[in-house]
Amino acid sequence: MAEISFPLPDLGEGLIEATVLEWLVTEGEMIERNHPLVEVETTKSAVELPSPQAGKVVRTYGEPGETIKVGDPLIVFEVPDDTAGIVGTVPKEEAPKRRVRLSANLDED
């Protein structure tokens, strides 16, 4: 298993920090991509951040009321070592299936 840290992104044009309002996930929880992670408030607005990926939540940073700087860790996920990238899915290894049979007169060779 590997850990992947997701830092607080810039939520607007050049904002430098955000305040945690409420965590919407708990440590140990398995979540899917786009699952709501946390509600934060910036100087512009309160926003709900969707999860950038699927995985198990290992750690969250910041209690409600605490301020986190852009670029500082927000949440850490645990994912399988061979997990897919951010785009696409890992192809399944399947037993080969066929409908076509070969026939040849190789005597002429």
Binding site: R98, L102, S103
Partner: peptide
């Protein structure tokens, strides 16, 4: 896919 390659071989 496997069948298209087999067709090509055939």
């Amino acid at each position: 896919n496997i069948d298209r390659i087999l067709y090509g071989i055939q």
